[in-house]
Design a protein around this nucleic acid. Structure first.
Lengths: 341, 341
DNA sequence: TTGAAAGCGCTAACAG
DNA sequence: CTGTTAGCGCTTTCAA
C-alpha cells in the first residue's frame, strides 16, 4: 500500500490541494466545517504528511543535531534525555552524531549541516577541537549553534556550562578542609574548557590557602584505563606523593581506586579522593565516593531550550551568553571517612 | 549567502541540470573530463546537495531511527556507539527517540515513521509493550524493523539478543557453586523478554540441582531506587531469607549494596550478589561486583548491520532470525570472596 | 472561503 | 555523452 498523499486526499474529498494543505496548517481562511471533513477523511485514510516535501518547501527540517564526543559516560547519556524531552515537546526530531574526540570528524559532521539537514546544532566539542571556524560557518549560514558542557569560550553564541571553576575550587577546598596538604589533579586534556576551568579553580583554592600548585601534581591521563592505573600508581609512589586526588573526569575514578588497591593504600586514610562524576554507583563504592555531580539532565534541557530560543528569533546575532547550571558537591567517605546514609 | 543549488551550479558551468546531477550519482555516462570540471566548480562554490530534495525524489531518507526506553543505563549508551559506528560507515543518519518505557509513546513514535521519515528502525521495546501491531504496521509498509536487547519474540523479523536464558542459568549455577542454598531473583518487570528469559534460566539451573524456585524469591522492584532499597531490606530480613541474589537489571545493584550496608550484612559472607550489569565501576565496588556483562557495543553493531541487510533486500519478508551475542560472566569478590586483579 | 499554479532542489526516463 | 522534461509531496502567492 503506497502512502497516501495530500493530492489523493484532496481528490477523495472533492477539494483542491491547496484547501487541504491549509487545513493542516490550521489556516484561519478555512471554514470549520471543511476542516472537520478533511481531518476526518485524513484519519480514515490514515494520511501522514511527508516531512521531506514539507522541509524542502519550507526550508525547515524540524530537526536538530546533537554532536557529542561519545555517549560512553553517564553525563552525556543523561544529557540526551534532557535534550530529547524538550525537543519532543517542541515537535522536533533529534539526530545524533559522535565525534569520538576527533576534530576532523567534528568538522566533517558540521560541514554536512550546510545542506540544511538540521535547523540547529547542540554541541559539546571534542577533545581535539582547537579552533571554532566550523562553528562560525554554521552560524553565518543561519544555523544556530549552542554549546553545552564542553564549550568554545571565544565563540559568540550561547553556552550552557556548569560552574566548573567554582567546582574545582570547592573540590580543592573540601580536600584541604579534610586535612590534605598536597593535592594532585588528574586530567585527560589540557585544552578542554572544562578541564582548564576545573584546574583553575583548584589553583585558586590552593592560593587562597597560601599553597602553590606544583606542576608535577598535574597528571595527564589517557583513554586507556589500564595505563591510567599505572600512571596513578607512579603518582602515589613518589616520595612527594599527594594526600589528596581530584579526578577531573568520571572515567579516571577507577584508576585511582585500583591503584590504591594495588598499593594497599587506604582511602581516605592514606589518600583522599574526590571525583567529577555522575555515576550512580558513587554511593556504593567502598569507600563511597565524594563527587562533584553535574546537573546533566538540567543542562541538556537548558541547552535545548536555548537552542529553540535562538531558532525562533531568526536573526544571526546570538548573544554570547553563558548559562551556568551549578554542580553539587556530595561529600562521602572517600574524603570525610564518615559513613553516611 | 543562500545555499547554492544544483541548478545554479549547472548554469555556472554552462551545463544542463541533469548532467550535473549525473556527476553526483557518479553515472558512467558522463565523461571523466566533465566530472572533474563539475566537481571542481562544486567545491569552489561550496555546493552541498539538499538531502531533503533527494529524499523526496528518491523516497529514501538515508536515515534510521533508534527507539529506546531510555539512555540512562550504560547498556544503551554503549549500544548507541555501536549503532552510530556502522550507520556512519554506510552514510546513514541516526535519529534517536526515547519511549520512557511507555507503550503509548512507542506507538506514537512509530506511527510518525509512516511518513517515510526513516528507512528503517532499530528498537528495544519499552517495559509496557504488550503487543506488536505497531511494529507489524511498519514492516507492512516496507520499513524494516530490527529488535535489539528487548525483543518481541512473536514478531517476524530479526532480533539481536544476548543469551539471556543461558546467562540466567550461568549466574544461578555460579551462585550455587559458591555455596548458595537459596536464591532470590530481582526484576523490574515480568513482561520484558529479557527478564523472563533470565528468570527462566535461573529456574532451569535450580531444577538441575533439584531445587525449586520459591515464588516469593522473585522480587519485583520499582523505578525508584529508594523504594528498592527498602524492598530488598525486607527480603533480607525474612526468616527464610536468600543467601544469593541475582539482580537482573543493572540499576538494582545499588539497592542490594545499600540494603546490605543498612543491615550490616556482609557481601559475600552473608549473601552473595551477581548482577546483570555493564557498569565500568563493577571492579571498584567493594566488594567488587560479579557481573554478567552484555556485549553492548557488539549488539549495537550487529543490530545496525542486520538492519542494513534488510534495507538492501527490498522485499517485505524478513526472516525471523535471532542473532545471539553472548554475555560474559566475570566473577569477582561479591560471589567468590576472592580478591582479584 | 476556496482554487489554480508555480516552484522548493533533486532524480530519472527519454531523446538526441 | 549531454540535454529536456516531468514530477516527488508539499506550501504559498494570487486570483476567483
Amino acid at each position: 500500500m503506497p502512502n497516501i498523499s495530500m493530492k489523493l486526499l484532496a481528490k477523495e474529498l472533492g477539494l483542491s490541494l491547496s484547501t487541504v494543505s491549509k487545513v493542516f496548517t490550521d489556516s484561519h481562511e478555512i471554514s470549520e466545517q471543511t476542516k472537520q471533513k478533511v481531518l476526518a477523511m485524513a484519519k480514515q485514510l490514515n494520511y501522514v504528511p511527508n516531512p521531506y516535501a514539507s522541509s524542502l518547501r519550507k526550508r525547515k527540517s524540524k530537526t536538530i543535531a546533537v554532536v557529542l564526543p561519545e555517549v560512553a559516560d553517564s553525563f552525556f547519556s543523561v544529557a540526551i534525555n534532557g535534550i530529547e524531552s524538550i525537543a519532543r515537546e517542541k515537535g522536533y526530531h533529534v539526530l545524533i552524531y559522535l565525534t569520538h574526540e576527533l576534530f576532523d570528524r567534528e568538522q566533517a559532521i558540521l560541514a554536512d549541516f550546510q545542506s540544511g539537514r538540521v535547523d540547529g546544532v547542540l554541541i559539546s566539542v571534542s577533545n581535539g577541537t582547537t579552533n571554532d571556524s566550523h562553528i562560525n560557518d554554521m552560524m553565518q549560514r543561519g544555523i544556530p549553534v549552542v554549546f553545552f558542557d564542553r564549550v568554545c569560550e571565544e565563540t559568540a553564541t550561547t553556552r550552557i556550562t556548569t560552574n566548573d571553576r567554582e567546582s574545582g575550587r570547592l573540590a580543592t577546598q573540601h580536600l584541604l578542609e579534610n586535612g590534605c596538604k598536597r593535592i594532585a589533579f588528574l586530567t585527560l586534556s589540557e585544552s578542554l574548557s572544562i578541564s582548564r576551568n576545573r584546574l583553575d579553580g583548584c589553583r585558586q583554592a590552593l592560593a587562597a590557602h597560601r599553597l602553590i600548585f606544583q606542576e608535577n601534581d598535574l597528571v595527564l591521563c589517557t583513554d586507556k584505563d589500564a595505563d591510567n592505573r599505572d600512571i596513578i600508581k607512579r603518582l602515589l609512589q613518589r616520595k612527594d606523593r599527594p594526600d589528596g586526588i581530584i579526578a577531573s573526569v568520571e572515567k579516571l575514578t577507577a584508576g585511582v581506586y585500583l591503584a590504591c588497591r594495588d598499593l594497599k593504600m587506604v582511602i581516605p586514610k592514606d589518600v583522599k579522593v574526590i571525583s567529577f562524576s555522575n555515576q550512580s554507583t558513587a554511593p556504593i563504592l567502598n569507600p563511597s565516593l565524594t563527587t562533584i555531580t553535574q546537573p546533566a539532565f538540567e543542562m541538556g534541557k537548558a541547552a535545548a531550550a536555548a537552542l529553540f530560543n535562538n531558532l525562533k528569533r531568526n536573526n544571526q546575532q546570538y548573544k554570547p551568553e553563558t548559562i551556568v547550571v551549578p554542580s553539587v558537591l556530595v561529600p562521602r567517605e572517600s574524603t570525610t571517612g564518615v559513613h553516611q546514609g
